[in-house]
Design a protein around this nucleic acid. Structure first.
Lengths: 208, 208
DNA sequence: GCCTAGGCTGACCGATCGGTCAGCGCCTGG
DNA sequence: CCAGGCGCTGACCGATCGGTCAGCCTAGGC
C-alpha cells in the first residue's frame, strides 16, 4: 500500500481526460469520426460538451489523443520487425506480435483500417498509415511478383479485418484465445513460403 | 422492341438520376456517408442541392439507390453459391465469381465493408450484411472448428479488403488482371482444404 | 478566512446539415 | 398557340455541428 500519509488518493474514478479518450475511442470506432459529435461523446461520458473541449483543444485533438497509444505501439512494433525478419527463428514472433497488437488495440485498429482513407488528412491517421505501409514494404522488398504481394496482403489485411469486422465489444469471451491461435496459424502459413523466397542474397538457404 | 417510330433518343448523356447515383457512390466511398453532404454531391455533379433532392427523396434514398445494383448482384451471387458448392468441379467458380463481383462493384464493396457496421440502421446496408452473412454460413455449416472458420474469414475478408484498401480509382491499369488472378489463386488455396473437409454426409469421402 | 486556480458549465456564435417550398423556364401534346 | 408538366433552382427552415467565452463552484495554500 503506497498510502504513506495524506496523499491525493482520489484517483479512483479520476482522470476525466483518460475517461474521455476511452469513450471517444469507442464511439469513433462504432459510428465513425464524422458520425460522432462532441455532444454525443460528452453525453456518453457524463460531461458537458464544453468540458470535453476544455480537456481537448478540438475534436481532432481528442481523436488524436484517443489513437495515440495504439499508434505509439505500432511504431514500436515496426522497430522490432526489422530485427525479427532477419532472424529465421524469430520470424514466427512477427506474426504473434502482429496479431497481439491487433487484439490489444482493436478499437484503434478498427478506426485506422475502416476510416483510414477517409481521414487521411488527420496527421495521426497519416502517421499510422505510413507505419503500416512501411511494415508492408519491409516485406515487399523481397517480393517481386504480384502474386507474392497479394499473398502477403491477404494475410495481413485478412487477419486485421477479421478482428475488426465483428461488432466492437464483441469477441471478448474465452474464445478470443481460440481466435488468436487460429489467426496466428493461418497467417503463419500464408507468409512462411514468402519468407523462404525472399532474401535471395543469403547463401545457405535451400531453394526447396 | 417498343420503339415504333419517333422515340426519345436523347439518352446519350441524359439521366441525371444515374449520374447522381454514380457521383454519390464515389463520394460516399471516399469520404463516408456521414462525411459526405448533399451539397458536396450536388456540386460535384454540377447540380443544385435541391435538384438532388428532387431526384431522390432524401440523402438515405440516394445512398440506397447508389448501392442497389451491387446489392442486387450480391443477392444473385448468393443464389448461385448453393449450386456451385454442391458441385466439386464448379467450386472454383465460386472464387472467381466472388473476386469478379468485388472487382465490378469496388466502390459499393468499399462502402459496405468499411461503413457497414456504422450504417447498420440503413435498410440496404442491413440487407447487404445479411447476404454476406448468409454466404459465410453456407460455408460455415460444414466448418465446426474455429480454425477452419478463421481460415475462411481471412480468405474472404482478406480478398475483399485488398481490393478495397487501396485508394478508390486506383488499381485501374492492366495490372488489375494480374491482381485478379493472384487473388483467385490465394483464395482458392485457402478454401480448398476446407471444401474437402466439409460435407461429412457424403458417403465416399475419405476421413484423412 | 480569504484568495487563487483549476475543473467544469451554460449561453452563445457562425456555419452547415438535411429537407421543404414556391416558382422559374422549357419542351411538348392537344 | 397555349396549357401543363417536368427538370431544376434559390430562398428559406429548424436542428445540429465544432468552437468560444465569461463565469460558477470548490478545494487547497497562505
Amino acid at each position: 500500500m503506497p498510502t504513506s500519509s495524506a496523499q491525493p488518493i482520489q484517483r479512483v474514478v479520476n482522470d476525466a481526460s483518460a475517461e474521455l479518450r476511452q469513450v471517444a475511442l469507442q464511439m469513433f470506432a462504432e459510428n465513425g469520426y464524422t458520425g460522432t459529435s462532441l455532444q454525443q461523446i460528452a453525453d456518453a461520458a457524463g460531461y458537458s460538451k464544453s468540458s470535453v473541449l476544455y480537456h481537448f483543444r478540438s475534436k481532432e485533438a481528442l481523436f488524436e489523443a484517443a489513437l495515440a497509444p495504439a499508434v505509439a505501439e505500432l511504431d514500436q512494433f515496426l522497430d522490432s520487425i526489422v530485427e525479427k525478419l532477419t532472424s529465421d527463428v524469430r520470424r514466427d514472433e512477427f506474426v504473434v506480435d502482429f496479431v497481439d497488437l491487433l487484439l490489444e488495440h482493436r478499437l484503434a485498429a478498427h478506426i485506422i483500417i475502416n476510416q483510414g482513407q477517409t481521414l487521411s488528412d488527420i496527421p495521426i491517421i497519416d502517421q499510422a498509415r505510413g507505419l503500416i505501409e512501411r511494415i508492408g514494404e519491409s516485406f515487399m522488398s523481397g517480393l517481386p511478383t504480384t502474386k507474392q504481394r497479394i499473398r502477403l496482403g491477404v494475410a495481413l489485411a485478412g487477419a486485421a479485418y477479421i478482428l475488426v469486422a465483428s461488432t466492437p465489444t464483441l469477441l471478448e469471451g474465452e474464445d478470443i484465445v481460440e481466435v488468436r491461435e487460429a489467426l496466428i496459424d493461418v497467417v503463419t502459413e500464408l507468409i512462411t513460403p514468402l519468407a523462404a523466397e525472399r532474401r535471395p542474397q543469403t547463401g545457405a538457404s535451400s531453394p526447396s
